[in-house]
Amino acid sequence: MTALKDYRRLEALGLWRERPEDQRREVIVSLGEATLVMSSAAGDALGHWSLPAVERLNPGQEPALYAPAADSDEELEVGEPEMIAAIERIRTAIAKSQPRPGRLRLALSIGFGLGVLAVAIFWLPEAMIQQTVSLLPQAKRAEIGRQMLSEITQIAGRPCGAPTGREALMQLAARTFGTDAPPRVVVVPATIPDTMTLPGNIIVASADLAEDYETPEVFAGYLLAERIRGAGADPIETFLREAGLAVTLRLLTTGEVRNDAIHGHAARLLSREGVPVSDTALIDSFAAARISSEPYAFARDVSGETVLGLIEANPMRGSAATPVLSDADWVSLQEICAS
């Protein structure tokens, strides 16, 4: 050790006692190979202390007081500055060379803490959302859907409710999706995205889909597209991802959702255009419903250039399709917002 080599021949006088009740005696203090040696004037060794174990009893003060261990009764007083500096330097060098389990524990603790933090940030929210979505009963989904619908209608206006129009709207839903649990379709008068899916099997549609087109196949096509969109992204899951972990945890543990979270999501839905759906999925849906895809395609693009697939693959081309609605029912649906 470099520090020890520098001071190997260093000696100095000191005062040493073996027990507290003993009289202190003058000794010669010398540095050995990792030891501090106390000798009498005659050269008799009185004590050998291991330098790694030596403790400074009065740090920063002089003369310096040392002990061979923290709990030892022995005591050595050294006043020679050069000897004090040598002892301190060697003790510091030895301490730095010793393994420090505390550092390993600290590193492991930090690593574990970072791992827990990473899990909390990246894994826990996703797992919490999936758990909540899988456990949420249909009745609770329907309740949240009704709450969202209430918030939407407060922003966009009351749902259109002409009696004959509502009847025609239910017929359109049954004709498009079948009579086995068709979605509840709600028409809103204000300018909103064409359609949006809410929890509880609810589809909100713009009144433009009834008022601006000549045939009900267009309205039916937008409903089919929205059903595909809703099947690809569970509306409850979408809501929870946007609402955050706190809302998800509260819903999972108490079954309650803050109204401000629902209001915020409703506002975002009203300003968000629906994501595109594939032509293949749409064609399959039109075929299952036995509805022509051409009116819907031309409603999206009058030129037909961007919807050529829907036109060319029309599943009802050359077939006699059952009317979506009678002329009278379609007129009633077009006037659903008139009252």
Rank of each mutant, 00 (worst) to 15 (best):
D180Q: 04
L65R: 15
P183F: 03
L310M: 12
V302W: 09
G32Q: 10
A34V: 12
W330C: 06
I129T: 15
I155L: 06
R56F: 03
T191S: 12
I291K: 03
M170Y: 08
G230Q: 09
T322F: 09
S150T: 15
A320M: 13
T253E: 02
S293G: 03
L209F: 02
P99W: 01
F219L: 07
A69I: 01
I336F: 02
P193D: 10
D194K: 15
S293M: 00
I262G: 01
R300E: 11
F112G: 13
V218M: 10
V116Y: 05
A41D: 14
I90D: 03
A299S: 14
V116E: 06
T35C: 02
E126N: 07
L249P: 03
P59V: 04
F122L: 00
A69M: 00
E305I: 07
V27N: 01
G178P: 08
E11A: 12
L15N: 10
S97M: 07
L65F: 15
E167V: 08
R272F: 05
M38E: 00
P163S: 10
P137R: 01
R89A: 03
T153Q: 10
A168P: 01
A261R: 06
R141F: 02
Q98W: 11
G145S: 09
S109T: 14
E211V: 13
E305A: 12
T238S: 07
Q131V: 02
E143T: 06
A12N: 02
E294Q: 10
T254R: 13
M316H: 01
L108T: 04
Q131D: 05
M170P: 01
A328D: 00
L108V: 11
P163V: 07
L51P: 04
S109M: 12
L108D: 04
D260Y: 04
Q138H: 00
D194F: 05
R141S: 11
T238A: 11
A313H: 07
T132L: 01
W16D: 00
P182G: 10
R19C: 01
G230M: 12
E256H: 09
D329L: 06
G111N: 13
Y7I: 11
E77H: 09
M170D: 08
L136A: 14
E26C: 06
S285K: 05
S109P: 04
I28W: 03
S206G: 13
F219D: 00
E88H: 08
T176W: 10
G244S: 09
V37M: 14
A181C: 02
I129G: 07
E21T: 14
G244M: 13
L198Q: 12
D301N: 15
T2P: 00
A173Q: 10
D329T: 11
A338E: 08
P295G: 15
A173H: 07
L15V: 05
R184P: 02
S50R: 11
A86T: 13
P81T: 12
M148I: 11
I236S: 01
I129D: 10
A190P: 09
Y66P: 03
R103Y: 09
S285A: 08
Q147R: 13
W330G: 04
R89G: 04
